[in-house]
C-alpha cells in the first residue's frame, strides 16, 4: 500500500496541480489570475514529464566516468525549450491583458461580457 503511494505520488501531485491550475483558469474572472493559473497548469505538465524520466539511483545526464546510471535526457530537452516558449507566450497573454484594460477599463471577465453585450 505504502509502495503504491510512493510509486505514484509524483503523478498524483502533478495531476492535483494541473486541476488547481485548470480550476483557476475556468472559475476565476480576473484575466491576470487566469494567466497565473495557466502557468501552474503548465508547470504541472513539466513536473509530469520530468517525473517520468527519473531513474532511481540515476544522476543528471552529464556524462562522467564515475557514474553509470543516468536519468532520461529526452524529457529534459523537451521541457527546457517548453519553459522558455512558455514565458514568451505568457508575455503575449499579458500584453493582450494590458490592451484589454486600455480598451475596456477592466480585466474582470463578467464586466467584459456585459460591455460586449451592450455594444
Amino acid at each position: 500500500m505504502l509502495q503504491e503511494i510512493l510509486d505514484h505520488y509524483n503523478y498524483w501531485i502533478a495531476i492535483m496541480l494541473m486541476m488547481v491550475g485548470f480550476y483557476t483558469v475556468v472559475a476565476r474572472g480576473n484575466l491576470v489570475k487566469k494567466i497565473v493559473g495557466l502557468n501552474i497548469f503548465q508547470t504541472s505538465v513539466f513536473l509530469l514529464y520530468i517525473s517520468m524520466g527519473k531513474v532511481t539511483g540515476g544522476t543528471a545526464p552529464i556524462l562522467d566516468e564515475r557514474f553509470t546510471v543516468y536519468s532520461n535526457p529526452i524529457p529534459h530537452v523537451l521541457i527546457l525549450t517548453a519553459i522558455v516558449v512558455g514565458v514568451a507566450t505568457t508575455a503575449l497573454g499579458l500584453a493582450l491583458v494590458v490592451r484589454i484594460k486600455e480598451s475596456y477599463g477592466t480585466i474582470e471577465e463578467d464586466e467584459l461580457d456585459l460591455m460586449d453585450g451592450e455594444t
Binding site: F46, G53, Y70, I83
Partner: peptide, 18 residues
C-alpha cells in the same frame, strides 16, 4: 523539485525564467 529529479538544465531554466 527539478534538481531533485536530476533535471539540472530544466531547473536552471525554471529558476531564471519562472
Amino acid at each position: 523539485m527539478f534538481v531533485a529529479l536530476d533535471a539540472v538544465d530544466v531547473a536552471f531554466t525554471e529558476a531564471a525564467v519562472g
